[in-house]
Every structure is written in C-alpha cells, then in structure tokens.
C-alpha cells in the first residue's frame, strides 16, 4: 500500500545525524550512540541496543508508532520519541 512508503518528515530536513526513524522498514543500520539519559540508555543497552549492533525496523502499531525493531536476536518495541534519540553511524 502506498501510504506505508511515506517518508518520515525528518528526512526532508537537513539533519546532522541519521537516527532509527530514518530507516525504512527492513533496512538495517548500525547503531552509533544513544542520545538518552544514562538510566534509559542502560535499559536499552540491556535489551540489545548497543553501539555497533545492527538494528532493523519491523512491524509497527497502526499509525507507525510505536515500532518494533529487530536487534541482537530479539524484537523490541520503541516509541518514536525514543527511536529518534538512537543515532546511527
């Protein structure tokens, strides 16, 4: 369906670094850093979101948020506001 392929609005603007929300579904990216408070970052890292690991967006809730990400052998759902803080290499 065509509306699924809509590009996220962020990619139109010039952004210094790509983040998880810039990835299309099924397209992998390598995580560079987690732009989050220490506590939240640790929790994400425990679930597999470690710098250097590959992350692939998968299914999402209706409307595209939250989205499931395949990371380190498991699938974890994140809200858009969190995914946007995970910066890619």
């Amino acid at each position: 369906m065509s509306f699924n392929k809509k590009k996220p609005a962020q990619s139109l603007r010039a952004r210094p670094a790509r983040n998880l929300t810039d990835l299309k579904r099924g397209e992998s990216g390598i995580l560079d850093r987690l732009d989050l408070p220490e506590e939240d970052a640790r929790r994400l890292m425990e679930m597999g979101f470690l710098p250097g690991h590959s992350v692939t967006p998968a299914h999402s809730a209706p409307g595209g948020d939250p989205r499931v990400f395949q990371v380190d052998g498991s699938e974890v759902a994140l809200r858009r506001e969190t995914a946007i803080r995970l910066i890619l290499r």
Partner: peptide, 9 residues
Amino acid sequence: ARSSFLLEM
C-alpha cells in the same frame, strides 16, 4: 513527562 515505552515482543 511522556514516559518511554520499551517492550520486548
């Protein structure tokens, strides 16, 4: 503040 949502499937 809107809290983070983190759930393993």
